[in-house]
Structures are given as C-alpha cells and as structure tokens.
Amino acid sequence: MFYHNIMPFLFIITHLVSSQSAPLAPALYVFGDSLLDNGNNNMLPTLAKANYHPYSIKFSAHVPLGRFKDGRTIADFIAEFLGLPYPPPYVHLFGSNWIIQSDTTLSSNLFRASLITGYNYASAACGILPETGSLYVRNTPRDYIILGKCISMDEQIEMFEGTIKSQLAPIYNDHGQLYQYLSKSIFLIITGNNDYIQNYLNPLILPSKQYDPDQFAQLLVDTFSLQIKRLYELGARKIILSDIGPLGCTPFFTRSLRRMLNNSEICECDENVNLIVSKFNDRLATMLQNLTASLIDSHFILQRSYHRSYDLIKHPAKYAYAISASRHLGELPVGVATDIKVGPYHSNGTTKAPMNGCVGVTSVKFNACEDMGPPHKSKAEFPVSIPGEKRN
C-alpha cells in the first residue's frame, strides 16, 4: 500500500492515541541524516555535531543532546504519536560522551532506552551513497571543511541487522514472533539531502560529475531502492519516507546565487538547484509505487516535503510567519553561526584533550538576523538546510 502523504496517517494515530494508552506500534526505527540524527554523530570523529548551544534550545531542559535543530525532530513527534519513548541514538551503546556528561540523568529520562522499542541510526552529513558526507564547502571550492566520519545508509542498515541478530533474536527466539514484531514496527527514513548538498552540488566531489542531473537522480533512486529492499528482507513492512525539500532555497544556495550575480540585495531561491532536486523526488514516488507492487504486504507513506516547504517560503503568511521565509528553511533562534573555531573537543564543551580521538567545535559566534517567526518572536537562520520544530 502506498500513501502520498503522512498527514492522514498521523491523524489516525492521534485519534487512536487519545483513546488508548498502549503504544500503537511495538517500536520505531529511524534512519537518515541530520534531519533525524539525535546524537549518533556526537560519538564519531566528525565536525558535524550538534552537542553545543544554541541547538535544542526548545528541547527539554534546553540541553543540546545532538539534534540538529532547535527542538524536536520528526522522529520525536512520531514517537509521541505512537506512544513510544524517543528512540535512543544507536551509537550511544558504545560509549557515554555523546551528551554533556553532567546531564546523564536527563538523557536517561528522555530516552528511557529499551532495545525493543526502537533505535535511531541516523547520521548527519551522510546520505544514500557511501561517498557522501566527507567534505563540506562553505563558500567557494577553496573554502571547505573535511567533516570526518558519518554513517552511510548502507552502514545504518548493517547496524539494524546487527540489532536483530544480537539483541532481538535472543528475545524473540521464535521466528514468527520476531516477524510479527518487525512487521508491526514503524520505520522512518529521511535521506538524500546530503547526496546533493555534500556530493552532486559539491564542486570538490568529482566522481558524481560524470552524471547529468537525470542520471544522478536515477543512480540515487536505484541505490535507495536496493536499500529499502534490504530493510524489507530484514523484516520492515511499514515505512515512512520523505522527499527532498527545496534545497535551492536554503542559505548555502541563496548566498551562492547572490555571489554569482554579484548583488547583495538579491535573496531568491536558486531554482536550478530546485529543478535538479525535483528529478529525484519525481522518481522516488514512482519507485515506491513499484516496490508496493513487488513487495508483499509492504506499506509506504511518502511525505511531500518539497511542495509544503516551497509553499511556506513563497506564502509565509499562510503559516503564521511574519516575513518571507525565502532566506532559509531554518528557525533556530539566537543567530547565524558565522565564525566557527575548530579544535580538540571535550564532551563538557571545553577545549581539552579529545575523547575517542574526536574533534569538534570549541566556540561559535552568532550574528542576529531578521525575524522569521510569528510577530514579536526572535528567529534566526539555521546554518544550512534544517527546519526547526515549528516547521516539523
């Protein structure tokens, strides 16, 4: 079964949750990128971390646990709707410095980690293709950052397979019980953004330049199809996905367009980038229809994020925004990170010897920017392309 929108699904869930206390699904398993990462990257040797302020300033106790936004992610909302605890970051199993050390109790209360209610495998900067996520170009090809390690989609699926073998199989030693558990669980996947931001549209990633936009979109869809089939083979039956938003309207590309036109007054979406991204989105819907026909008892829900986000940008008043959102898709208050200093990073936020060889951000300066929210509420620009809690 294939649905083109998640809203009817969430409406049904909300109605059911209000009438019963038992969870509507046994578990929620999360895969993807920074739109869903809730702490996995904090344990990796990478600069793509979100364990410092002002991240999560709308989240419980305002503690930056690793979400790349101001508050809850889509996965958090779905977990709440299902009546499940927030799926803990899977890499958290291998260490404790994924959060600020003084807030261990808070973290435990937030996640209430249970290996039978799901995990979050999402990793910021990564994508569908294994080579995505190593470099981030800030302004020009000469101004770039080597990000470090992230967990690709293939690796995330391998982690899930490991979860089945090492943790779930001993509990559900009967194959039929394990099948029932997995078939009733919800699988959430949001990925593909970085395959454009950190790969195809990154001038330093040369291998992808052998493809024209249609060919690259087809490469992504073909690879993604195999990954979804692998999840299906492992037991996934109910899968929620999202297409890619209008990346041409994010700060990186609006600023690039402004520089290219040499006009500081211009703040418009790069529609060429949006056209390139839409080629993947169009193929994604067709791919899911084909998978529905070939994979017995599969259920897919595709959230059309592109059209909703683009409409918000072009018609902000419809969504109670004070001014046009064409400057960016984010809503993180405080300001724009404009001067990031990189060095050895300690999990308590100080510049000390790195833990597990990790490096990270030691200080960030912020500049205030124009109001992006309802009147009288200060908003500011999110660094790249990540929507805040209000938009989720």
Rank of each mutant, 00 (worst) to 15 (best):
H53W: 07
R259Y: 03
I323H: 12
S183M: 06
L65A: 11
G360K: 06
H328I: 02
P26Y: 04
A337N: 05
S324M: 03
R67M: 04
Y86T: 08
L226R: 14
Q180V: 12
L312A: 14
P344K: 08
F160A: 06
N274P: 06
I171W: 06
K318Y: 08
I296H: 12
L261W: 01
K379R: 14
I190P: 05
S134P: 09
R138P: 05
A22H: 11
A368W: 09
P354A: 01
K365H: 03
H315R: 14
L302D: 04
R255N: 03
S134E: 14
V277T: 08
Y179N: 11
A75G: 10
Y306K: 03
F31E: 00
H15S: 15
S347E: 14
A169T: 09
A236K: 01
Q156M: 12
F300H: 07
Y172H: 07
S298L: 00
P141W: 03
G335V: 00
Q210L: 05
L241C: 06
R259I: 00
C150D: 02
V91S: 13
R308Y: 11
P26A: 03
V359M: 07
G192F: 10
C249M: 03
C269L: 01
I157K: 11
R230M: 14
L93M: 15
S96H: 15
H346A: 10
S114T: 07
S305K: 02
Q101W: 15
L129E: 13
A380S: 08
F9K: 06
T292Q: 08
A125H: 10
I12T: 13
R391W: 09
Q227F: 07
A61E: 13
A353Y: 12
Y86F: 13
F253H: 11
Q177I: 06
S309Y: 14
E155H: 14
V364W: 13
K165A: 06
P207R: 02
V334T: 08
L295C: 06
I301K: 07
K209E: 01
Q180I: 08
A325K: 04
T350L: 15
M260A: 12
Y29L: 12
I145D: 08
L226M: 11
H328S: 11
L295S: 09
G162L: 07
E389N: 03
D214R: 08
T73F: 11
